[in-house]
């Protein structure tokens, strides 16, 4: 779906992404790992134009996302889940999920609500439909955020450290939902520090450091036989 060529991103003089080239296939689960500050979030955010690249090209189904594609259309098809959930606090859980389908996709209220209930059931929170987000635990909020993204019927989801803001005992519930999504064939790009998840679920793992893709390959290759010394060093620290 995404072909990235020589992507580069600078903030002023600070080069955050350097010469990133990669491909993301339909239905593929790609995990991006690496030390903090290595540019993982920025890469993800360039894919849905939350950040504007300063060099290189990104194609989405063959179309240059900068020039040939309607940004809103791209974002409808490529959903995103944030580290800090970012649920809308003034809406109930149900309305958080139905809002975009109704206002962006012009879905009828009853259809949107039916869809929302199905998705809430899927993430195990059907009983929370009428609750406001503040009343939920972090893990529950993140599962609602996933349901909200799914309600747009995306082709792919981007996750930026979806479990990093959670208490350790709540991480499992969110990862379980994500594993189920992967099993259902949803394409996902996941920036994560959960190495167990990356090893178990991903088709491909990408290791980034200092703005470069240092190494990529199957989970088996990256976790069991990393070639690059920087990868080895990083994994030695986190595993």
């Amino acid at each position: 779906m995404f072909s990235i060529f020589n992507l580069e991103k600078k903030y002023g003089d600070l080069e955050v992404l350097k010469d990133i080239s990669m491909y993301i296939g339909e239905g593929e689960v790609v995990c991006i790992i690496g030390p903090s500050g290595s540019g993982k979030s920025t890469l993800l955010r360039c894919l849905n134009l939350l950040e504007l690249q300063t060099g290189g090209k990104i194609f989405y189904y063959g179309k240059n996302i900068d020039a040939e594609l309607d940004t809103k259309k791209l974002r409808r098809e490529v959903g995103m889940v944030f580290q800090k959930f970012n649920l809308f606090p003034m809406f109930t859980v149900l309305k958080n999920i139905t809002y975009a389908p109704m206002h962006v996709n012009k879905m009828k209220k009853e259809d949107a609500e039916k869809l929302a209930m199905e998705l809430l059931t899927k993430v195990g929170l059907a009983d929370k439909a009428d609750v406001y987000p503040v009343k939920l635990s972090g893990g529950q909020q993140q599962r609602v955020a996933i349901a909200r993204a799914l309600a747009m019927n995306p082709k792919m989801l981007l996750f930026d450290e979806p479990t990093s803001a959670l208490d350790p005992e709540l991480v499992g519930d969110v990862l379980a939902v994500m594993k189920q999504l992967a099993a259902d064939g949803m394409g996902m790009v996941v920036v994560t520090h959960e190495m167990g998840f990356a090893r178990e679920v991903s088709d491909r793992v990408i290791f980034m450091d200092k703005g470069y893709i240092v190494e990529e390959g199957t989970p088996d290759k990256i976790f069991n036989n990393p070639e690059n010394p920087r990868t080895q060093e990083f994994l030695a620290r986190v595993l």
Binding site: K73, R75, F82, Y99, M152
Partner: peptide
Amino acid sequence: VDKGQTEAALVLGLGKYEALFRIVIPQ
């Protein structure tokens, strides 16, 4: 208002002004 609110609205396909008027300003 947390910038994450605008971003959450944008990634759902809302426009810049929709995000401002319907999500950010009410808060």
